[in-house]
């Protein structure tokens, strides 16, 4: 059976994992490759890295940690942050990353999605969307620059456009739910996953076991992502998987 995926997300700053992670057996929890390998052992299906400091100036730092991760991590991983061109894609994929997540760069230059998909295949093009509910409550708009700038573009429409241009996957973060631990934004997730044929990764708001189940079972997410919940070991990936399996959702255990 094809399985739903559980994906921990790591924030990287200047080549180091930002949030602490409570894996006791790690020599250096700040080292991306060590932390990621620990997530592999813990049962993660993939790992997403968001490089929050990446820019043209420190591209080499980025390539170096990606290279290190690829020599120790033998599950698929996605790299996001500061990727603006097909050349950036090529450089990072060449180091062993499986997928690239683009957010603001895709908004500013949608053709990057199609160019990258043509060159490297849709399977490695992840369009990350930061969405927030409109003040009048009708639907969601997308934000760029790490959630700072409202583009006043409809989130569902943008997801459909991204798919048409060749995105292989949508990484959908609810800015309203992010950090609340009150659950994923199920209506947003459902609206997007019901409008595209490509997998949607739900992100933002996971706080307890039932949240993962709802995102998959009710909202149609193919994968569920969490960061701090796993960083701080508030929930174990294996517990999430057992919970889902007991509710007839196919997972890799």
């Amino acid at each position: 059976m094809h399985t739903k995926r559980i994906i921990p997300c790591l924030d990287i700053k200047n080549g180091r994992v930002v949030k602490g992670i409570k894996f006791v057996d790690l020599k250096d929890a700040g080292e991306p490759s060590e932390t990621a390998a620990a997530y592999d052992r813990a049962g993660a299906d993939e790992v997403v890295f968001l490089d929050i400091t990446a820019s043209a100036d420190n591209r080499n730092t980025q390539l170096e940690w990606v290279r290190n991760v690829a020599s120790k991590l033998f599950i698929p991983f996605t790299v996001g942050g500061g990727i603006k061109s097909v050349d950036d894609f090529r450089a990072i994929l060449r180091e062993g990353a499986d997928k690239i997540a683009i957010n603001s760069a895709a908004i500013m230059n949608p053709e990057l999605i199609s160019e990258a998909a043509d060159k490297f295949g849709s399977q490695c093009v992840v369009v990350a969307i930061d969405a927030k509910r409109r003040e009048n409550g009708s639907g969601w708009t997308i934000y760029k620059n790490g959630g700072r700038v409202d583009m006043e573009m409809d989130a569902v429409e943008w997801a459909v456009t991204a798919q048409r241009l060749g995105a292989g996957e949508i990484l959908l973060t609810s800015m309203d739910a992010d950090g609340t631990k009150a659950g994923y934004d199920l209506e947003l997730t459902k609206a997007v996953s019901g409008s595209v044929g490509i997998p949607v990764i739900a992100s933002g708001g996971a706080g307890e076991l039932s949240h993962f189940y709802d995102a998959i079972n009710y909202a149609g997410a193919e994968a569920v992502l969490a960061a701090s919940l796993f960083h701080y070991k508030e929930l174990e990936i294996s517990k999430v998987k057992e919970y889902l399996r007991d509710r007839n959702i196919s997972v890799r255990i």
């Binding site: 059976m1 094809h2 995926r5 299906d45 399977q123 490509i198 997998p199 193919e222």
Partner: peptide, 11 residues
Amino acid sequence: NLKIPHIGWND
């Protein structure tokens, strides 16, 4: 019910 490409873990 199945997306193409087939991407992900399968047994």
